[in-house]
């Protein structure tokens, strides 16, 4: 049993209670993924599993054998930041930084979801192709809480990363 994290294979834990989040922050040594609530209520632990964003705190690691996980560390590094990471930096889309990796992972997946045509609660025409509007971004990012209140800047960062005028 193994799991692939940012392209590297990792053993799964012996204790089935260990969540994907605790595996990442513990044995895998990837503390970029944050624990904010441990109950799927804040989004700080958001990672991509096979390209889909999930709350890693609500996923048992053992259920993910064979899966490919991408964390914030997989999206870029201080020397080579990814597009979304750079956009957050440029727009001051964070303050304390604790929700930030989750916001960035979430935003990265979100743009793909819009491209794939998935609707959201903010989509007026369910059968049409959703557009990257402020309201769409805000609704789709509502699973990522930011208590510092950087939302305005986060939306601007995402718009830039999406190639829109910020």
């Amino acid at each position: 049993m193994a799991i692939t994290i940012n392209g590297q294979e990792h053993a799964l834990p012996d204790d089935p209670r260990v969540t994907l989040l605790d595996l990442l922050r513990g044995d895998a040594g990837l503390t970029g993924t944050k624990k904010g609530c441990d109950h799927g209520q804040c989004g700080a632990c958001t990672v991509l599993v096979n390209g889909m964003r999930i709350n890693s705190c609500l996923a048992l690691a053992v259920t993910h054998d064979g899966d490919e996980v991408t964390t914030i560390e997989g999206l870029g590094s201080p020397t080579e930041p990814g597009v979304m990471q750079s956009a957050f930096l440029a727009h001051d889309g964070f303050q304390c930084g604790y929700c930030t990796p989750g916001q960035i992972c979430s935003a990265t997946a979100m743009l793909e979801e819009i491209k794939a045509g998935w609707p959201s609660d903010a989509t007026e025409d369910l059968e049409g192709a959703p557009e990257i509007t402020g309201e769409e971004i805000r609704e789709r990012m509502s699973g990522n809480l930011c208590r510092c209140g950087a939302y305005t800047n986060i939306v601007a960062a995402i718009r830039e990363a999406a190639g829109e005028d910020a």
Binding site: R53, I54, L58, A109, P119, D121, T123, G143
Partner: peptide, 19 residues
């Protein structure tokens, strides 16, 4: 069945709905 799509989209978050 748009009522169903709407109801699902009104619940939780994208991360949770993905799981």
């Amino acid at each position: 069945y748009p009522v169903l799509a709407r109801a699902i989209l009104a619940g939780a978050t994208q991360q949770l709905r993905n799981k």
